[in-house]
């Protein structure tokens, strides 16, 4: 009798566990995300539901200028060398690697802990020089970006790596590149991402460059409240 019950339990567990790798495999292709904050308004608003695609990684189009991406924020730890030129190896994402967090990342099930992720628009890719002029706009490679999707231009100035500082998601004050006077040039394998609501948010103007490896996916379709394809660069809400 005990053996029979044990067999039944093993069978049920096997049937249920079978769902985990299938779910994880599907999340390698598409992932649903809920927008809890106003940092990307007006393009994305609180309660919006979007689908991210992850296949652009295979075609090399994940980090494209103007694309909206979701990524894990960089680690709050100080860089190895605060006086370097920006290529400081600060590509470590703020992720935990215990089994529960890994399962949470793989399956997205609410029974596992889920780490915070940020949704931002890519402004600069590897090799781009970024400059922000207060109340004017963002210059990429000395060309002013035309940005119909923002509410108002940034009210802060970014000229050098030393201008990148502020409180992170965890509330820790960081100045990732110290007082470096080097221009802001995006290193290889990194992106510079800003929110559409430039003045009330935590983005690359505070935590600096983000590793391409930390990108979870690129916004593909908004499914609620409107159904809209949003994969094209510089997409704005209709």
């Amino acid at each position: 009798m005990i053996k029979r019950i044990a067999n039944i339990i093993v069978m049920l567990i096997a049937l249920e566990l079978l769902m985990l790798p299938i779910l994880a495999l599907f999340r390698c292709v598409v992932e649903a995300r809920y927008i809890p904050s106003t940092s990307m308004r007006p393009a994305l608003q609180v309660n919006d539901r979007i689908l991210l695609e992850k296949v652009s990684r295979f075609t090399g189009k994940m980090a494209e200028r103007g694309a909206i991406v979701v990524f894990y924020p960089p680690s709050d730890r100080l860089p190895k060398n605060a006086d370097n030129n920006g290529d400081d190896g600060r590509d470590e994402a703020n992720q935990k690697w215990d089994i529960m967090h890994v399962l949470g990342r793989l399956t997205g099930l609410p029974i596992f802990p889920n780490e915070p992720a940020l949704v931002k628009r890519i402004i600069g890719v590897a090799g781009d020089t970024i400059r922000v002029v207060p109340n004017v706009g963002v210059y990429v490679n000395d060309k002013l970006l035309v940005e119909p999707y923002i509410i108002a231009p940034a009210n802060y100035e970014l000229k050098t790596l030393g201008d990148i500082f502020g409180p992170t998601v965890a509330g820790i004050w960081v100045r990732p590149y110290g007082k470096s006077q080097q221009p802001i040039v995006v290193p290889k394998g990194m992106i510079f991402a800003l929110s559409d609501d430039r003045n009330n948010t935590i983005d690359s103007h505070i935590f600096g460059f983000v590793s391409e490896k930390a990108i979870i996916g690129r916004a593909w379709v908004m499914v609620y409240p409107i159904q809209k394809y949003m994969h094209e660069p510089y997409w704005s809400r209709p």
Partner: peptide, 23 residues
């Protein structure tokens, strides 16, 4: 069945993701 379908889905998505009709 699941693995086969996910791979077919991923392949078609990779080919069509950059066109507006992809959804």
């Amino acid at each position: 069945q699941a693995v086969r379908n996910i791979l077919i889905f991923a392949a078609i998505l990779t080919l069509t993701v950059s066109i507006p009709q992809s959804p």
